[in-house]
Write a protein that binds this DNA or RNA. Structure first.
Lengths: 161, 161
DNA sequence: CGCAATTCAATTGCGCGCAATCTAATTACG
DNA sequence: CGTAATTAGATTGCGCGCAATTGAATTGCG
């Protein structure tokens, strides 16, 4: 059925390797494509993702942004400081829960969305496939990510106590 | 509104954003899945990719590995030094062309391939889709990468001087 | 209420990833 | 032949990405 072992293992190894290379290469090609487009905006690719998250919903705590992007505070804290230094966001402690730091867009940060629209268009052209194809690929990648994430957390699902 | 355009632009922007997030998330989920599997081997994910390239073909110059993985010497030089320190590869100047440094597997490096087979199997399970699906996804990603790379190099085809 | 466990963010350390720069070796060309 | 242009690799600097630790605030529970 799903698993036969034997000499199909060689295919498995090679496919694994090829899938490695493919997703690794595609992800980096993506960031390389963005880089020159984001440079005029003064943003790196991860910073751009954070801005998108904030354009979708302003005034979020760091944790919420981290969940959306799959990043932890070790990555986000310095990144957000740079966005603050660039004058795009502000960081202030939540009044109700002082553990949280809420990230909000400044006027400049909000206005940057307009320029970002041009970036999205350029990427759309570079991706060079139809809308439907892009949607299909997006869904496949999301599904893959979910399966990988689930498989990774299968070690300790719950103490069953 | 500085830009009117059609309201299909909104879809474009959102799809762009979603594709961003999807590929970004999938790539990181991939590396996170590998991490615990590679830890017993003493390899990071990029180091694993280099080892795969060497298992496919031993005794390659740094440049060839860089082309295969899409990495430059700025990334590879320190990485290869770590692999050398781990006793997995050797680095020696090519006799015919002393600019090149040829990377070769040590006995230990060659033997590591056996253990890596188990890694591939585990990943196959984590990916959790059929062989055909994996092949299709791989091909889509490779095609995407090629389109992105080509689009990126369209800026300066030739100086035409 | 009071103390332990949890949660959120920041910090530290290490390994990429890449642009920019540098050096040395090779090739191209007059 | 000799100099310019090219090529390979190393180095530096900066920004992630993540594990591990820390510290402060909050929640849970007796």
């Amino acid at each position: 059925m799903q698993k036969k072992a034997s000499n199909a293992d060689n295919f498995e190894i090679e496919l694994d390797a090829q899938l490695c290379f493919a997703i690794y290469g595609a992800a980096h090609a993506f960031t390389r494509t963005y880089k020159p487009l984001l440079e005029p905006l003064g943003l790196t690719y991860p910073q751009y993702l954070v801005m998108i998250a904030l354009w979708e919903e302003d005034d979020q705590p760091v944790k919420a942004i981290g969940d959306r992007l799959g990043l932890d505070s070790g990555t986000l804290s310095p990144l957000l400081k740079r966005l603050e230094q660039s004058g795009l966001v502000t960081r202030k402690r939540d009044c109700d829960d002082e553990r949280q730091v809420r990230i909000s867009l400044t006027k400049k940060g909000t206005e940057l969305k307009t320029q970002a629209a041009g970036v999205a268009g350029a990427i759309g052209r570079a991706v060079g496939c139809s809308f439907d194809e892009a949607v299909a690929l997006r869904d496949k990648l999301i599904a893959l990510k979910q399966r990988l994430t689930k498989a990774g957390s299968e070690k300790d699902p719950l103490p069953s106590a």
